[in-house]
C-alpha cells in the first residue's frame, strides 16, 4: 500500500544542511496499524510528512497504492491527500469560531462530492466519534478529548484509506488518551482503516501491530 525506497530528506543548504532522513525504506500493508517511535530529532515527523504527501523527499522513490508519487506536483498531491489520506494533529487544528459540523465538512469543500450531500457525510462521521450532541458547538466550548474527536471525524469524512496521527494524545490526559486510542482501535479493527501514528509513549504505541523505531534519520528496528 505504501512503499518507501531509500528515501532521504535534506533541509537547508551548504553549511546549514540537516539530514532528516538518511535512506529510509519501508513497506506498509493495507489495514496495518503502525506506530513510529523515536526521540525528538530522529526524523519521525519528517517521515510522517513524506508518507502523508505533505512534504517531498530529496531523493528516493515513494509509491502509494502502487502509483509512483515521488514526482507528482503540489496540486496532484493535494488531490491524493484529499481522496486517500486523513490527518489528526497533536494540536487539533480546528477552525476557531466555527462549529463542529462546519469543521468536519472542511475536506468536503475540496472534493468532488456535491454540496447537498455534505451534511449527511459529516453527520455520519460525527456520530461515529460519538459527538452528535455537540454538533453545534464551537471548539472553545469543547474539551481536549472532544476536540480530538472532531479532528478524527474530519479525517474520516472522505473515508480515506490511510489515517495519519501525529502525537494525537500529546495534549490529552491519560484517561482521555485511553478513550482516543480506543477510537483508533475501533477504526482499525471494525472499519479496516490503515493507521500510521507517531508517539513517544510506549503505552500508546502498544495499540499498534507494528512499531517502527527511528534514530538519527534511520529506521533502527
Amino acid at each position: 500500500m505504501i512503499k518507501l525506497e531509500n528515501i532521504t530528506k535534506i533541509f537547508g543548504q551548504g553549511d546549514n544542511e540537516t539530514h532528516a532522513l538518511r535512506g529510509v525504506s519501508l513497506f506498509i500493508e493495507k489495514g496495518e496499524f503502525v506506530a513510529i517511535m523515536g526521540p525528538s530529532g530522529s526524523g519521525k515527523s519528517t517521515m510522517l510528512h513524506i508518507l502523508g504527501l505533505l512534504d517531498s523527499s530529496t531523493a528516493g522513490e515513494q509509491h502509494l497504492h502502487g502509483e509512483l508519487v515521488t514526482a507528482l506536483d503540489e496540486d496532484a498531491k493535494a488531490a491524493l491527500r484529499n481522496k486517500n489520506l486523513g490527518f489528526v494533529f497533536q494540536s487539533f487544528n480546528l477552525l476557531p469560531r466555527t462549529n463542529v459540523l462546519e469543521n468536519v465538512k472542511l475536506p468536503l469543500m475540496y472534493s468532488d462530492i456535491p454540496a447537498k450531500n455534505w451534511d449527511t457525510h459529516a453527520r455520519k462521521v460525527i456520530e461515529q466519534v460519538g459527538l452528535s450532541h455537540r454538533i453545534d458547538h464551537e471548539p472553545s466550548q469543547l474539551s481536549g478529548g472532544e476536540k480530538q474527536r472532531v479532528a478524527i471525524a474530519r479525517a474520516l469524512v472522505l473515508q480515506p484509506s490511510i489515517i495519519f496521527a501525529d502525537e494525537p494524545t500529546g495534549n490529552l490526559d491519560s484517561v482521555t488518551s485511553g478513550q482516543i486510542m480506543e477510537l483508533f482501535d475501533e477504526l482499525h479493527q471494525a472499519h479496516g482503516h490503515t493507521i500510521i501514528l507517531i508517539t513517544h509513549e510506549d503505552d500508546i504505541a502498544a495499540h499498534a501491530q507494528r512499531i517502527i523505531r527511528m534514530h538519527d534519520g534511520k529506521i533502527v528496528v
Binding site: 505533505l54 503540489e74 496540486d75 493535494a78 491527500r81 477552525l95 472542511l106 475536506p107 469543500m109 475540496y110
Partner: peptide
C-alpha cells in the same frame, strides 16, 4: 497561517 496549512493538508490546492 495554520488554517491555510490545515486546508492544504485536507486537499486544498494553491488556486483554491
Amino acid at each position: 497561517t495554520r488554517e491555510i496549512g490545515l486546508r492544504k493538508a485536507v486537499g486544498a490546492r494553491q488556486k483554491d
